[in-house]
Design a protein around this nucleic acid. Structure first.
Length: 586
RNA sequence: GCGCUUGUAGCUCAACCGGAUAGAGCACCAGCCUUCUAAGCUGGGGGUCGCAGGUUCGAGUCCUGCCAAGCGCGCCA
């Protein structure tokens, strides 16, 4: 519809040009907008305002000329000059009501489009370290990432969802060692637990499990474990040195193979838990990508070679540096440490090279906002690898601050005092949790008040939207009970009976859905869909209160049923994209 | 100190990437259930869009400078 109007205006401008009323070389960008106020019609064009200066004319006069040159079209009932020079278009209600037929015909496919057709896009999100269960902070990334992916999919992109598993590095060693120390406790050894270890209950559970299966196979005397280990922080030492020494001790006392058991069992247990957790949250991936694999198959070495070949690496202080500051980063970064170990950044370069090699047209990384300082160096790496850095799009998700009423809830994986995503789901349910997470722009901080979200009779807006859906279902149930039958065809033939204002505004909400979806997808802004659904629900509730649907007149009744049937379909499509259920009764 | 993000109604947030009189929800006040679910609807009050300049037909939106909050600035991940 928008495009039709664009064409009309273009024709008018061409006509003015041939008439000599406009200079030939003037080629304005035509932007058509939906109006906010129905008094301004359905669409507004600002072309006269934009054109006024180059045409050396005043906007209102110019607009009049354009209006006079507009070709007739039966879709447009009225064209008006308004305000400083807007041209307002009023669309025939009959053409608007065509949407009801379209929605019915397309069903669950209504609103989908093909703007992204032929383009491969990769969305990487959550990617939390597998050192513990997901907490509520990860939940936001999970909900946001999965909806962004689903939206892109809905507008035609070939979407690949991926979780980058940080199964290498020091954090994993700390986990493995934490499990082993807890295991020793299971063997009735008495020893202090490192302040920098993972203290969560899940660590004890894993240790308990291992002890059950292996008995004392991994048991080593405490004296050997603690011998010559530097003091922990509470004892006036350094917690980092303390834990690193414990890790080294675990490796020597157990030997590589037995130590790996703890590493691997811990990783598997936690990763399985994360997978199940996300799946229950409605989040699924095409691929779980292992960091360790990059290390093992030489990808990291290959990536560094490529950088070296491009002259981007140099040695200093015994370490290997990436000269990222020449590519927009604020300083150079170490990729190989003095001790010969790769940094996390090195494997991340390899990971992004891998993404490039897989031929994605667009790569979307969704990170917690605290990682924003990391963006320039990854961009620099992309560039150094010879790729267009614009292919990488990093979307930041701000932290959710948790409150229990007035009180702020502290979170730390180490200390084990955190609210897990699973706990949150159990308390508020998947629907409310997803809705809440995605309701706001991702860059906004959100205060997640557990008290408020867990109170069942709250003002949670998810119910408002679901209730609209349930009400439509209820109307159809009532229809049955009254012994009436819906005649779809009769209703479609009588759409012109829908003359009420409420009906017109409900229809114009429905008409907007496809373009809304496209915008929300291309801008990575799921919250727009939420806002739209709330508006749509509002239009429906208003209509519901103002008019009776189940009237005696069958033609009018069926026309109205077709209208609310269309509303039901769009609500279902929108909620479906958000991964939120559509209860038939509430 | 430098960088990123944020600042809009009492509170929580929108505003279609420059458009017309800045909108919702919650809270507050006043109404609507013998009729399809009142988890709903209708009406009302409430704003110097952090501050000051600038760009132009037109600025909450773009530019500059300040102010405030959060985060980041490791041979951690």
């Amino acid at each position: 519809m928008k495009k039709k109007i664009e064409e009309l205006i273009l024709q008018a401008v061409e006509k003015l040009k041939t008439d000599g009323a406009l200079e030939q070389e003037i080629n304005p960008p035509i932007t058509i907008e939906r109006t906010r106020d129905p008094l301004h019609g359905n669409f507004a064009a600002n072309i006269a305002l934009v054109l006024a200066k180059p045409a050396k004319s005043n906007p209102r006069q110019l607009a009049e000329k354009i209006i006079a040159s507009l070709p007739q079209h039966d879709m447009v009932t009225k064209v008006e000059l308004a305000g400083p020079g807007f041209i307002n278009f009023f669309i025939d209600t009959k053409s608007q009501f065509e949407i009801i037929r379209q929605i019915h015909d397309s069903g669950s496919k209504f609103g989908l489009s093909q703007v992204g057709a032929g383009k491969k896009v990769q969305v990487e999100f959550v990617s939390a370290n597998p050192t513990g269960p997901l907490h509520v902070g990860h939940g936001r990334g999970a909900a946001y990432g999965s909806v962004v992916a689903d939206l892109l999919n809905a507008v035609g992109f070939d979407v690949h969802r991926e979780y980058y598993v940080n199964d290498a590095g020091r954090q994993m060693d700390i986990l493995a060692t934490s499990i082993w120390l807890r295991y020793l406790e299971e063997c009735d050894e008495v020893l202090p637990f490192p302040s920098n270890g993972y203290r969560g209950n899940y660590v004890r559970e894993i240790a308990w499990d291992i002890h059950k299966n292996a008995n004392n196979e991994y048991r080593r005397p405490v004296e050997l474990v603690l011998e010559n280990i530097p003091l922990d922080e509470p004892q006036g030492g350094d917690k980092e040195l303390h834990i690193d020494a414990l890790i080294a001790r675990a490796k020597t006392l157990l030997g590589t193979s037995l130590y790996q058991d703890f590493f691997q069992i811990g990783l598997n247990k936690i990763l399985d838990d994360i997978k199940a957790d996300l799946h229950e949250f409605g989040v699924d991936y095409q691929q779980w990508f292992s960091e360790r694999q990059l290390m093992d198959d030489g990808s990291v070495e290959k990536a560094l070679e490529r950088l070296r070949a491009g002259g981007h690496l140099y040695e200093q202080d015994g370490a290997t540096w990436f000269a990222s500051s020449q590519l927009g980063d604020e300083k150079d970064r170490v990729v190989v440490r003095e001790n010969g170990q790769y940094t996390y950044f090195a494997s991340d370069i390899a990971y992004h090279m891998n993404k490039l090699d897989r031929g994605f047209d667009q790569m979307i990384d969704i990170w917690g906002a605290d990682h924003h300082g990391y963006i320039p160096r990854v961009r620099a790496a992309m560039q150094a690898l010879g790729a267009n850095p614009a292919k990488l799009n990093v979307l930041l998700v701000q932290f959710a601050t948790l409150y229990r009423g007035e009180e702020k809830v502290q979170m730390s994986t180490r200390s084990g005092e955190f609210v897990t995503l699973r706990q949150l789901r159990n308390e508020v349910g998947k629907d409310a949790a997803r809705f809440f997470y995605v309701m706001r722009r991702s860059e906004q901080h959100i205060d997640f008040d557990l008290k408020l979200a867990t109170s069942k009779t709250n003002e949670n807006p998810v119910f408002y939207v679901q209730y609209a859906y349930a009400r439509v279902c209820s109307v159809f149930r009532q229809l049955d009970e009254k012994g009436w039958e819906r005649n779809l065809l009769l209703g479609m033939e009588n759409l012109e009976l829908l003359v009420e204002e409420h009906e017109a505004s409900l229809v114009s909400a429905l008409v907007r859905y496809p373009e809304l979806l496209e915008r929300a997808a291309l801008q990575y802004e799921p919250h727009q869909l939420i806002h739209y659904l709330r508006e749509l629900a509002h239009e429906f509730h208003t209509y519901y209160n103002a008019h009776q649907f189940l009237v005696e007149d069958a033609a009018l009744r069926d026309a109205r049923l077709n209208l609310i049937g269309a509303a039901k379909q769009v609500l279902a499509n929108g909620l479906g994209l958000l991964g939120i259920s559509t209860p038939e009764s509430m």
